[in-house]
Design a protein around this nucleic acid. Structure first.
Lengths: 131, 131
DNA sequence: CTCAGATATGTTATATAGTTACAAACTTGA
DNA sequence: TCAAGTTTGTAACTATATAACATATCTGAG
């Protein structure tokens, strides 16, 4: 599972995150990639910055962790609001897009003169299996 | 501006945050309260934990900072979803509640068997003044 | 009152997350 | 082929948060 246009380090980080199938902290990634020549946090953060700019990876702010985009082909960055349901039990992350909510937020904030740049929506709770 | 039922440290932290009129990091609070006898991060974090449990203070996950609740009398904790519009220009934070959105989220996630416990909604952007 | 449990506080050390500053290597195209 | 831009490497540092343990204060049953 690789993507064109990525440098070596970016590809390593992206593959690692994709393979994990769930969120990882920057330092977990660093440790996992020591055998591939990673030595310092910056190598991870730089790769993550690029991957996030490309919409291939998202940061989970409430977890200080990073997760591969669930549908990179759709260019998450462009279709606005990305939301996450995060299970406090098993740690699984479910990424979703809710256009109605998105428009409501836009309308509501637009009415106040606020111009959104990046929206963080993370619902912590229990998934069907862990409830 | 004080609240009944708070211990000395909790009251100091709450008053500091209320007086600030905006978000502060835990370590800013710590530095500001050295004259009041604060020495260690834990003193701040413990007070913040209690204040958050009471719904008097919210954490801004995308900022790693804390802010006094805009309407403590309403017991934010209880009326569910609290959202924040955070200006990347001036740093001002606007706290709001959007019940329609809240219900949509509940419906959507409920349909998937997901039980929300805590919801983080933070919209970063530019306020009317800074746009 | 008084003392035992619960709650709150103090202190040191450590773990985790992220950035700054600078140097070296590798593209790439005039 | 060499100069500008980009990517990478490395060390040191700052910022955020928690663990472990000791001490003090509060509060109610006897």
């Amino acid at each position: 599972m690789s993507v064109a246009g990525l440098t070596k380090n970016q590809a390593l980080v992206f593959d690692k995150l994709t393979g994990a199938g769930g969120p990882m902290s920057a330092y977990q990634i660093l440790d996992d990639l020591r055998d591939d020549g990673f030595r310092a946090p910056l190598q991870v953060y730089r790769a993550l910055d690029k991957l996030m700019a490309e919409g291939l990876v998202h940061k989970l702010e409430s977890l200080n962790a990073f997760v591969a985009c669930a549908h990179p082909e759709e260019k998450c960055g462009s279709h606005g609001l990305t939301a996450f349901a995060i299970c406090n039990g098993c740690g699984n992350v479910f990424e979703f897009h809710h256009h109605k909510m998105e428009h409501q937020l836009e309308d509501f904030l637009g009415g106040k003169g606020f111009k959104p740049e990046k929206t963080v929506i993370e619902i912590r709770g229990k998934c069907a299996n862990c409830a």
